[in-house]
């Protein structure tokens, strides 16, 4: 009797990170959706390809997002220029990600310039966040 209850409690706990919904993150996504002309929804797979592509468009030390965030966004990363540890980007292990609009904008501005050599579009930002929400 008790065992199924405990099991379901454990399952709930295990699943909790996947439900790390946050109204602030939703609002950030909604803003990017509004700024995305001809918006038809964000795509986790486009976000993943943004994350993994070797852009080599900016700083040679950061040819891709993975240069700092590693191939696995659920892991800790490390700033390739300074050696500073970086918390995981995946929302499932770091629920604070993409909840502070100023921080999100500042980081996209810096990192897109550093990796792609240009600013990211609102669609790219939304795709990236959508990918990380599923990670």
């Amino acid at each position: 009797m008790i065992r199924p209850l405990m099991l379901s409690a454990a399952l709930l706990l295990a699943a909790a990170p996947a439900f790390a919904a946050d109204a602030r993150r939703d609002a950030i996504l909604a803003d990017y959706a509004k700024a995305d002309s001809g918006h038809t929804g964000f795509s986790a797979s486009r976000g993943e390809s943004l994350f993994r592509t070797q852009w080599k468009g900016g700083d040679e030390r950061t040819p891709s997002c993975t240069a700092c965030h590693t191939d696995n966004p659920r892991q800790n990363g490390r700033n390739a220029k300074t050696g500073r540890p970086i918390d995981p980007v995946a929302v499932s292990v770091n629920s604070k990600r993409f909840t502070d609009v100023d921080l999100v904008e500042k980081q996209f501005t810096r990192d897109c310039k550093s990796v792609l050599g240009r600013e990211c579009t609102p669609r790219e930002k939304g795709d990236y966040i959508t990918f990380m929400m599923g990670q």
Binding site: R78, A80, T82, G83, R84
Partner: peptide, 11 residues
């Protein structure tokens, strides 16, 4: 490899 750059004091 843990150093990366001279400014990485905590390494």
């Amino acid at each position: 490899p843990k150093v990366v750059t001279k400014s990485n004091c905590p390494a």
